[in-house]
Design a protein around this nucleic acid. Structure first.
Length: 423
RNA sequence: GUGGCUGUAGCUCAAUGGCAGAGCGCUUGACUGUGGAUCAAGAUGUUGUGGGUUCGACCCCCAUCAGCCACCCCA
């Protein structure tokens, strides 16, 4: 035990139980993505570091990416996010793709950070994007995808909410109080930290950036105005569409949401536990310059990303993780003794040809051990072929759930199982 | 990158500086063709790792690794 080599920090082993949950999540993601007509795609896991230099945000690449030189000396990055890859893939075939593009993906990502609650170094992320349209209806569609996903997975609008804002709205409001492009990024950071700092520290931080007392006062008024969204024709339209789609209850305006990544240009949103537990479940928004930033012609887009770790924590908290069958096997064929091993293997092969998932015990150990094994892996039916059965031309079928058993004619067994197995 | 807490049996956790334990799980049996329940017996440890203090260290000190949590940042 002591000599087992340690797993890499911040990675998780997916034992069959965890793998089943991950695949279940993947399935729900696929279901909702396809329900909206999105196509699945995937990019490489390795990218040149230059791809991220463009726009991802300084820190994400410099300090939070796994970077290494390949044998030719080029710096290669384990992808920390997918959006730049998406932008590259679109730019490469910009003139042949049919717009608007609706694409989704689910795959692994890496960030070199200290692991903690809701965050690991290796994680899986759902990315979904609508590219080639800059309408608020497109923004609303992505938010709707998000809300439908919650609905499908069993999270109701009392448990989780999608907080929405618009960077253009915030920019114009900031203009009105005399904050221009020069201070914009810093003020966005300030807004982003409103809840994370004490009011006193926050005021001090604001003044440090260079806000006058009057500007700070006006900024506070902005951030506490729940009706501010009505100043944005885009947000008005977004909420209107979501209302018509019957998903309005999941969504609310939140002026403090501006998102960390630099490439967002319009509507931004993130989903959180309503109880304010933990970090954001997902985050996204509109990015209208990204394709141009990697060398393509300007093309607008909107999308979001959801990590598997935080959604897993939320689903666990609300008891929504499914009870998944332990084994895919529907039937276990026991081996009665050495001389009857061939009988059991032949029977198992016959069941498999009929499409029945079957395990055959691989050695002639005592029957109680084989039954105990069947019970522990969670298989429903056990088949026994001993001397009595062989002589009578039957098979004993035992249902481990009910404890009942009966003899079925050897030639009837496939039909019998097909009638009694679930599905 | 910064700070805090924690590392003892497969798991969850006890043990005043003085013989390393319990519950669960596991193995075997009660039950030679039947799992779960019950009862009985049994096995399991380099106390994360490396140093130091001490007559003596799971316990105190230092370092290191890992896990958890917060910061930073973000999914």
């Amino acid at each position: 035990m002591k000599s087992v080599i340690q797993a890499v920090k911040g990675t998780r082993d997916f034992y069959p139980e965890e793998m089943a949950v991950r695949n279940w999540l993947y399935g729900k993601i696929r279901e909702v993505s396809q329900l909206f007509g999105y196509q699945e795609y995937e990019g490489p896991i390795l990218e040149r570091i230059d791809l991220y230099a463009a726009k991802s945000g300084e820190e994400l690449v410099k300090e939070q990416a796994f970077v290494f030189p390949d044998r030719g000396g080029d710096l290669i990055t384990l992808r920390p996010e997918l959006t730049p890859t998406l932008a590259r893939m679109v730019a490469q075939r910009q003139n042949t793709l049919v717009y608007p593009l609706r694409w989704w993906s689910f795959g692994p990502f890496w960030r070199y950070e200290r692991p903690q609650k809701g965050r690991t170094r290796e994680f899986f992320q759902w990315n979904i994007d609508l590219i080639g349209v800059d309408s608020p209806e497109a923004d609303a569609e992505l938010i709707a995808v998000c809300a439908m996903f919650f609905e499908k997975i069993g999270l109701n609008s009392q448990q989780v909410g999608i907080l929405v804002n618009n960077r253009r709205l915030m920019e114009s409001q900031l203009e009105q109080i005399g904050i221009g492009e020069r201070l914009r990024q810093q003020v966005f950071r300030l807004i982003d930290r409103r809840d994370k700092m004490s009011p006193v520290d926050w005021d001090a931080y604001a003044q440090e950036i260079g806000l006058h007392v009057e500007q700070l006062q006006k900024l506070k008024e902005m951030l506490s105005d729940p009706e501010l969204w009505q100043m944005s024709s885009e947000l008005v339209r977004v909420f209107e569409i979501l209302e018509e789609m019957g998903l309005r209850q999941y969504v609310q305006f939140e002026p403090q949401i501006v998102r960390g990544l630099d490439y967002y240009t319009g509507t931004v949103f993130e989903a959180r536990d309503r109880a304010r537990d933990g970090r954001a479940i997902l985050g996204g928004g509109r990015y209208d310059n990204l394709v141009a930033d990697v060398g393509g012609n300007p093309l607008p887009g909107v999308g979001f990303a959801m990590g598997d770790v935080m959604i897993g924590i939320v689903l666990e908290k609300y008891g929504l993780l499914p009870n998944l069958a332990k084994t895919p096997a529907q039937v276990l064929v026991t081996v009665f003794d050495e001389t009857r091993i061939k009988l059991s293997f032949a029977l198992a092969a016959e069941l498999r040809r009929a499409g029945i998932s079957t395990i055959v015990y691989p050695e002639a150990v005592k029957l109680p051990r084989q039954l105990k094994f069947a019970d522990r892996i969670g298989v429903r039916y056990v088949l026994i072929v001993g001397p009595d059965e062989e002589a009578a031309g039957v098979v004993t079928v035992k249902n481990l759930t009910t404890g009942e058993q009966e003899n079925i004619g050897r030639l009837e067994i496939v039909n019998w199982l097909n009638r009694h197995l679930p599905d």
